[in-house]
Simulated scan of single mutants.
Amino acid sequence: MAYEPIHMTWDYWDGPRTGIADCEGRPHYFACQFDPQQEEYRDLFALTPLDAETWDWAQEHWAIWQRWEAEVNAGRLTPQSHPRHGQFDPRYNELEALIDAGIDRLRAQATRRRGAVRRRAVEGELFPGQWNRYEIEWSAPLDEDAGD
């Protein structure tokens, strides 16, 4: 297997936990599995393939986030102006609802994989204030993961 790009990270806790990454060259929604007994995230992920429409919505949604984050990092906006509150770009919430519906519609196609995340080497800022980019290498889950 080879490392593939994580295009966007929606939730982060000691690493990307939800977002969109390529798997076998196609965009997938990923959700890292939490182990309540160990009280930690595992390297096991649910992967839902995205159709073209949902992928387009996600890219538009991410572009709004990047514009907002650049404004916060430049000191022109505060974190309290988060796009979810509807003041920065009202389309953000509309897109989020469309993306969620798309993922729900495609969830029957979800698979499970193990994922090894690492920082990807990037020259300079990706956009103002954003320096880190991640990639992930997917592998089949172990037999003992089947019941999780």
Rank of each mutant, 00 (worst) to 15 (best):
M1S: 13
A2K: 15
Y3P: 10
E4F: 15
P5T: 15
H7W: 15
M8F: 08
T9S: 08
W10Q: 15
D11I: 14
D11N: 13
D14V: 05
D14Y: 11
G15P: 08
R17C: 13
T18S: 15
G19R: 02
I20T: 09
A21G: 04
A21Q: 11
C23Y: 12
E24K: 14
H28D: 05
F30K: 00
F30L: 00
A31T: 13
C32G: 09
Q33R: 04
D35R: 09
Q38G: 05
Q38T: 03
E40P: 06
Y41S: 08
L47M: 09
P49E: 07
P49L: 06
L50S: 07
L50R: 12
E53P: 00
T54M: 04
T54R: 04
A58N: 07
Q59E: 10
A63Y: 00
I64T: 04
R67V: 07
A70P: 01
A70V: 01
E71Q: 02
A74F: 01
A74W: 00
A74R: 03
L77E: 03
P79Q: 01
Q80K: 07
H82V: 07
H82K: 15
P83H: 10
G86N: 05
G86P: 09
Y92A: 07
Y92C: 05
L95I: 11
L98H: 05
L98E: 10
I99K: 01
A101H: 02
G102Y: 12
I103M: 01
D104M: 03
D104T: 12
R105T: 09
L106Y: 03
R107N: 07
R107S: 08
A108G: 03
A108K: 04
A108H: 02
A110T: 05
R112W: 04
R112K: 06
R112C: 05
R112L: 10
R113N: 01
R114F: 02
R114H: 07
V117A: 09
V117F: 05
V117L: 11
R118K: 05
A121Q: 04
A121K: 02
V122H: 06
G124D: 11
G124Q: 13
E125N: 04
P128I: 09
W131G: 08
W131L: 12
Y134P: 11
Y134S: 03
Y134V: 01
I136K: 06
S139P: 06
A140R: 09
L142C: 13
E144H: 15
D145G: 13
D145M: 12
A146K: 11
D148T: 12
D148H: 15
